[in-house]
Simulated scan of single mutants.
Amino acid sequence: MRVFLTLRTQRQMLILGIVALAVISIILAAALFHDRETPEIVKLGKGLASVDAQPVRDLEPRAPANVPEPVPSPSESGIGNGRASFYGNELAGNRTASGEIFDPKRLTAAHRTLPLGSRVRVTNARNGKSVIVRINDRGPFHGNRVIDISTAAARTIGLIRSGTGRVNLALLVS
């Protein structure tokens, strides 16, 4: 008889545990479902949109509208402008066209035609920040991009979040 009472109590506890787990699951599912139906709405420009719809390029701080075009110094020669991208950690350790090992922490870049070893000032047209890079590789070979810069250079001029951006290039003359 005592064994029967013990088994009965254990069965009751098991059933209560299963019921409690089911109730908690239903409450959690209802809370998650409610969250999906009402995304956080924020004001973007002239209208409203959910946070998920915000373009990444809008997350970067914008420069004032009157940022002047960079004027090359006498030791610099403007060589044009265009889109820049950056290449990062996935290529770390590979050999570049110059024969050196690529390190994304160094201020280097790839250009299709400039001589290897050339130094170029890359200026972000959006915020006016600039960095001097050394050409040690060839590229970019995709799209309409004029230069690929290292992760460190992209971080310096604020291209990390967007991945690409409009830049001005100036060749430093020695």
Rank of each mutant, 00 (worst) to 15 (best):
R145H: 13
P115Y: 03
G99Q: 06
I147T: 02
D137R: 00
T96M: 14
D148F: 05
I135S: 00
I149W: 01
T151P: 00
S118P: 10
R134K: 15
V120W: 04
A97H: 13
V146F: 04
G117R: 01
R119W: 06
A153K: 11
F141G: 02
P104S: 14
V133Y: 01
I101M: 13
V120K: 08
D148I: 09
I147E: 06
K129A: 14
N144G: 13
I132Q: 14
R138L: 03
V120R: 07
A125F: 01
T113K: 14
H142L: 11
N144R: 14
N136R: 07
G99I: 10
P115W: 05
V146C: 06
S130V: 12
L114A: 09
P140K: 07
V133R: 00
D137K: 06
R106W: 06
N136G: 09
A109E: 07
A153Y: 11
G99M: 08
R134H: 09
R134V: 15
L116K: 10
E100D: 02
G128Q: 02
E100C: 05
N144A: 12
T96I: 09
I132P: 06
A152S: 14
R106E: 15
S98M: 13
V133K: 02
I149Y: 01
L116T: 06
V146R: 02
N144Q: 15
I149V: 02
V131A: 10
T113A: 12
N127D: 04
A97T: 04
S150H: 11
T113C: 02
H142S: 14
A125W: 05
R126T: 14
I101R: 15
H111Y: 04
I147P: 03
L116C: 11
A153N: 03
R126C: 03
N136L: 06
N144K: 13
E100S: 13
H111L: 02
S118W: 06
T123G: 08
S130P: 02
R119A: 04
G99K: 07
F141C: 04
V146I: 07
K105T: 15
N144W: 03
S150N: 13
R112N: 14
I149K: 00
V120F: 08
D137L: 08
R119C: 02
R126M: 07
R121L: 04
K105S: 15
I147N: 00
P140V: 12
R106V: 12
N127L: 00
G143T: 08
P115E: 00
V133F: 00
L107N: 12
R112T: 12
T123M: 06
R134P: 07
H142M: 05
S130L: 04
F102Y: 07
P104Y: 12
N144C: 01
F141M: 10
G143E: 08
S98Y: 15
K129H: 12
P104W: 10
R119E: 13
R121Y: 00
G99P: 09
N127I: 01
T113L: 10
F141V: 01
G117A: 03
R134L: 11
V146N: 00
F141A: 02
I132W: 07
S118M: 03
F102V: 09
D103I: 11
N124Y: 05
S130R: 05
R121E: 01
T151R: 15
S118H: 08
I149D: 00
G117H: 02
L114Y: 11
L107E: 08
R112Q: 13
G139K: 08
V133T: 00
R121T: 02
S150R: 12
I101Y: 10
A109G: 02
H142R: 12
H142W: 04
R106Y: 11
V133E: 01
I132N: 14
N127K: 05
